[in-house]
Design a protein around this nucleic acid. Structure first.
Length: 307
DNA sequence: AAGACGAAAGTGGTTGA
DNA sequence: TCAACAACTTTCGTCTT
């Protein structure tokens, strides 16, 4: 199997293989370098067409980003029609007409929507697996008629948001909003509506999932980054995280660890990257200091600076 | 002068009667 | 369906570096 050695975006060699998700992620810029790392090798061999028939199990691969999943169903034409009497034949034509109408309506919608979905997805540099998942969600939503009364774009954005969360590569509503041009409120609304109607359960996102991306946006070193993960874990144990917005916590953890490692960033900078306000960072930051006695560590790093 | 701090009032969403 | 509520934002004045 072949692995990418360098990040094509920033040339970093700091790549990280997440085996469960089957993705290679650049730790520096957060780019998903490779995903869907599936072993494409066959575990069997075939020596003639007879064996091939018995051993091959699959047809072409399915993809939800193709509007009909690469397949398609038509009610057949002409074949065997001579066997039907005129009544049945009329029925047959009527069915075919309806099938045609319904499928073209849905297909036309899907074609447009999936084009938009791909656009937004590539803008946000989302992994292919998330794109697939969101396409699947959108397809289901269309089939259930959930798009009616809502703009196609907002449902696309909602599906993407849901897929990101499920794959633990969360983007903030702000980012989705910027990429799709749909209001934050609207995305949140359709997201909740669609996931509820489709019975998709989504875990509350983990602050740690945001760290890599925020850290690279702030150009922090790997040490600060792992320090902030450590802080997050301690915060979780101290039950400082439940009920709080995950981005705010991630931002505060990054802010503190940057201080500790003498890579000071202003609250403003961190706040902008994380999409929260300085006030929120201050509140989380204060809680972190109170509960985890990080004050010592900060003082230490200040002393080191003096020396 | 810029950044950090914190109080106060406002917003949108959840929850429980 | 409504009111209470928690988290977060906005705004603004004050303190610190």
């Amino acid at each position: 199997m072949h692995y990418v050695k360098k990040c094509p975006e920033c040339d970093s060699i700091n790549l990280f293989l997440n085996k469960e998700k089957g993705e290679v992620i650049c730790k520096d810029c957060g780019l998903v370098v490779e995903d869907k790392l599936v072993d494409f090798e066959q575990e069997w061999r075939e020596f003639d067409s007879d064996q091939a028939d018995r051993k091959r199990r699959t047809g072409a691969s399915l993809s939800y980003t193709q509007y009909d999943q690469g397949l398609g169903t038509d009610i057949g034409q002409k074949v065997d029609l001579y066997r039907l009497d005129s009544k049945d034949r009329n029925k047959f034509f009527r069915l075919r007409k309806w099938q045609y109408r319904i499928s073209t309506a849905i297909e036309r919608n899907l074609k447009l929507a999936l084009a938009e979905l791909k656009r937004v997805s590539s803008y946000l540099k989302l992994p292919k697996s998330v794109e697939e998942e969101s396409a699947r969600v959108y397809t289901l939503a269309v089939q259930r008629g959930l798009v009616r009364g809502r703009s196609m774009e907002s449902v696309v954005a909602g599906a993407l948001y849901a897929a990101c969360r499920r794959h633990e590569v969360p983007r903030t509503l702000d980012e989705l909003s910027e990429a799709s041009g749909i209001e934050k409120k609207e995305i949140g609304r359709t997201y909740r509506f669609v996931t509820r109607e489709l019975g998709i359960t989504i875990l509350p996102s983990n602050p740690a999932d945001y760290i890599a991306r925020f850290a690279s946006a702030l150009k922090l070193t790997a040490e600060s980054q792992s320090k902030s993960i450590e802080i997050l874990e301690r915060a979780q144990k101290a039950e400082l995280t439940s009920g709080r917005g995950p981005t705010g916590i991630a931002a505060a953890a990054l802010y503190v660890s940057a201080l500790i490692h003498g890579e000071k960033r202003t609250q403003r900078e961190v706040a902008d990257v994380a999409g929260v306000t300085e006030v929120t960072i201050r509140n989380r930051y204060k809680e972190l200091l109170d509960e985890l006695d990080l004050a010592k560590e900060i003082k230490k790093s200040k002393k080191r600076k003096k020396d």
